[in-house]
Amino acid sequence: MGLVARRIEELGVPTVCLNLLWMFQRIVGMPRVAAVEHPFGRPFGDVGDAATQRAVLLAALEVASTVDEPGAVVHLPFVWHEDPKHTKWHPPEPAPIIRLMKAQLAKNA
């Protein structure tokens, strides 16, 4: 996502990236980043939680209009409503790359 943002920015359209893994900024260099502490799959908020979805969307857009320092990461203050232990985001079956890595680990063990 960050690399696509860089290219689109280069082609003349201002971008802002909502980001769950803001530490990637160190190697990607996105123009503007709004970091949020939400689980994979639901970056704007939970199903049916229109208030959070709206607030995250507006906050991310406001990052674009207020930040004028390339590469800035703004940390949004939202707190996910569930404990990580009770937050389900995993796919129904492990992703192919995870399956491959597990098979390789088992082979090397």
């Binding site: 996502m1 696509v4 943002a5 689109i8 359209v13 201002p14 971008t15 802002v16 990236c17 909502l18 980001n19 769950l20 893994l21 994979f40 799959g41 639901r42 970056p43 704007f44 969307l57 991310a60 857009l61 674009a64 209009s65």
Partner: peptide, 10 residues
Amino acid sequence: GVDLLLLAPV
């Protein structure tokens, strides 16, 4: 004529 693109991960 888009003025701003918001990219969002999952």
